[in-house]
């Protein structure tokens, strides 16, 4: 990639919006959340609390209400906030290596 000259870039180090989407921060993760969707009551607390907007939802799920469907693992950094705020404790945090092994077995 050719690097730009200082006259060719925005003053004050400003960039386009939603630039976080361009970076795969999921590989920073040491532990990953696993949602038990059968136990989940779709209260949306994890969705609201997630600092990286990494909880995936379907806007019109069961009964036309929003529904939690999974995690955006390309951007989830494994902070565990979702697991901590979950009122029914349906989000467990697994070690990344264990999750990978489990994934391989499946």
């Amino acid at each position: 990639m050719t690097l730009k000259k200082y006259t060719e870039i925005s003053e004050g180090a400003r960039g386009d919006g939603a630039s976080s989407l361009q970076f795969n921060t999921g590989n920073w993760r040491a532990i990953r959340p696993d949602i038990n969707t059968k136990k989940c009551i779709n209260c949306m607390l994890c969705y609201l609390y997630c600092p990286d907007d990494a909880i995936l939802i379907k806007k019109e799920g069961k009964d036309g209400k929003p529904e939690i469907v999974g995690i955006d693992l390309e951007h989830c950094k494994g902070c565990s906030i979702c697991s901590n705020v979950c009122p029914v404790k349906c989000i467990t945090m697994d070690k990344e290596e264990d999750a990978l092994k489990k994934g391989l077995k499946e």
């Binding site: 180090a13 960039g15 386009d16």
Partner: peptide
């Protein structure tokens, strides 16, 4: 209408250029 990112991480590839500005 024009979404922006401000205060982003700026490493050895562009930090110096922004300082030059």
């Amino acid at each position: 209408e024009k979404p922006l990112s401000v205060g982003m991480l700026d490493f050895y590839d562009y930090f110096f250029e922004h300082k030059k500005q």
